[in-house]
Nucleic acid binder design. Structure first.
Length: 465
RNA sequence: GUCCCUAUCGUCUAGCCUGGCCCAGGACACCGCCCUUUCACGGCGGCGACGGGGGUUCGAAUCCCCCUGGGGACGCCA
């Protein structure tokens, strides 16, 4: 066990999205690699927007990705007493003060500042007031004046400096007495002994304020690593209009968690020319040093490619289990058909998602085949009658209904019909699967089994036109 | 507007720190060929980038400066 303590701290105001998942992943990987501790903390101080459903969704997504935490989940909503106490402490020490400015006044000032091209920051109106009006107030943290800039050494971006005149007295407690993000994140990271904060780029600007708070609270400052944002194809921040951003939406679309993990980690991180990484590879090879510094564009096509790779190379038994719900979603009764594993094996190198695999597998389980219009018109014609008759005859006689046995049978069929293999396979394929695209015809025959095969050919004969 | 970050093929990136091995490598996508009973898989090949301008240097994708582009932040959200 090393001293490394990292955390993932999502706010439960929605599902776990792609960006959050990557942040969680980086935290997880580093904690495993260093045998550190991975803490999960739910940042639900915004009581209005936080929901239990979101918490559940986030937990479920992390579980799907395989990102188990060592401690937590801790809920900030359980810790309000602690935060109030810390706020009081800061006030008592003269490091924070009550501000009676109304939101309207602040909005107006902010607006005016923007208009004039000034930095829209709090002007410090209440900073020196000594009276205590009987009016609603927030508590502000008094920007320390003992130095005029704050620098931290970001583990990904290097040294970053902010001048204090860019900062203002930030609100740490709302009118309703609840604490705000910048305060609680500091208190909790300190209390939970977090030594390295890995989070999104969008927090870089918060970092100096937070460092100042650590110092005011007398806590040691952790290290920071800010990972770049993920953008959509138009280089705008990734959002719904770029397609699915929810991790679990990808599960529903038939993606494998290992594909998602592999994709996410490679978006912004690299290890030479390697592309394929298992979780174990990543735990061994991941490093903050090789995380890029610029924002990256989410590329669904590469994710899809990785998914097809993992389907292709995945364990058929596991894929068979995963495939069942996708088949059932199509109204297919999987007990009414061939064994799942052989079915999966015929489809692994042809399906990029589990949804696609379910689509392609449907014919195996159909009671009666629906023929595709074009396929039927082209291959189920009356002049195929003789071919199908011979096919029924020879397949009936075929004792070994596997590739080797079928090859022998087909040699005879080719001889009797004087047709090349392709001329036989296509009509047969349509009879068996309803379409012109399917796994190898021998495999289809074998998986379907002699009875079903003969039954389907006979029905096709009645459908010849 | 102000501040912060950032900049290699369309996209993800290697290379940059420790200049020459880079007329820039890999992957996805795209195109072509091959394999082939269909669809795929696979194999081979192609297309395709150091944002611009100044320096420093015998030599710069690599170091420095400026410009430009992109992203982020500027909430009683997190």
């Amino acid at each position: 066990m090393s001293d490394l303590r990292v955390r993932f701290a999502p706010s439960p105001t929605g599902y776990l999205h792609i960006g959050g998942a990557r942040t969680a992943l980086f935290n997880y990987l580093l904690s495993r690699q260093q045998q550190g501790t991975f803490v999960l903390r739910i940042e639900d101080t915004d009581v209005e927007r936080s929901t239990q459903e979101s918490v559940d969704a986030i937990l479920q997504a992390m579980d799907w990705l395989g990102l188990a935490c060592d401690e937590g989940p801790f809920y900030q909503s359980d810790r309000f007493d602690l935060y109030r106490q810390k706020v009081q402490q800061l006030v008592d020490e003269g490091k924070a003060y009550r501000c009676y400015c109304t939101p309207e006044e602040l909005d107006a000032k902010r607006e005016a500042a923007m208009q004039e091209g000034r930095k829209p920051k709090y002007d410090g109106t209440c900073r020196h007031r000594t009276d205590q009006p009987d009016a609603p107030y927030v508590v502000r943290f008094k920007l320390p004046t003992d130095r005029d800039e704050t620098t931290f050494n970001d583990r990904i971006k290097g040294p970053i400096t902010f001048r204090h005149d860019e900062l203002d007295d930030l609100i740490i407690q709302r009118t309703d007495g609840t604490p705000t993000y910048n305060l609680v994140v500091v208190i909790d990271d300190a209390e939970m002994g977090i030594t390295l904060v890995i989070r999104g780029d969008d927090h870089v600007n918060n970092t100096p304020r937070q460092i100042l708070l650590y110092e005011a609270l007398g806590c040691s400052v952790p290290e920071f690593a800010h990972v770049p944002m993920i953008l959509g194809a138009d280089k705008k921040r990734l959002s719904k209009r770029h397609g699915a951003t929810s991790v679990m939406a990808y599960q529903e679309m038939g993606y494998l968690p290992e594909a998602m993990v592999n994709y996410l980690v490679r978006l912004g991180w690299s290890c030479g020319d390697e592309e394929i990484f298992s979780m174990d590879d990543l735990i061994e090879k991941f490093s903050l040093e090789n995380v890029g510094r610029a924002a990256g564009v989410f590329n669904p096509e590469k994710l899809l490619w990785l998914n097809s790779h993992y389907i292709k190379t995945g364990d058929a038994e596991r894929l068979a289990r995963l495939l069942v719900p996708f088949l059932e979603a199509k109204g297919i009764n999987v007990n009414n058909g061939p064994d799942m594993v052989p079915v999966v094996k015929t489809l692994q190198e042809r399906a990029a998602t589990m949804v696609e695999m379910a689509d392609s597998a449907a014919f195996y389980f159909a009671d009666t085949i629906d023929y595709e219009e074009k396929a039927k018109a082209k291959f189920l014609t009356v002049d195929q009658k003789d071919l199908f008759t011979i096919l029924i005859d020879e397949l009936q006689k075929c004792e070994r209904f596997d590739e080797a046995g079928l090859e022998v049978a087909f040699a005879t069929i080719m001889e009797k019909t004087e047709l090349k293999f392709g001329k036989i396979a296509q009509p047969l394929r349509v009879a068996l699967t309803g379409g012109t695209a399917s796994p190898s015809i021998y495999h289809v025959l074998e998986v379907l089994g002699k009875d079903v095969v003969l039954q389907r050919i006979e029905r096709a004969v009645t459908a010849l036109a």
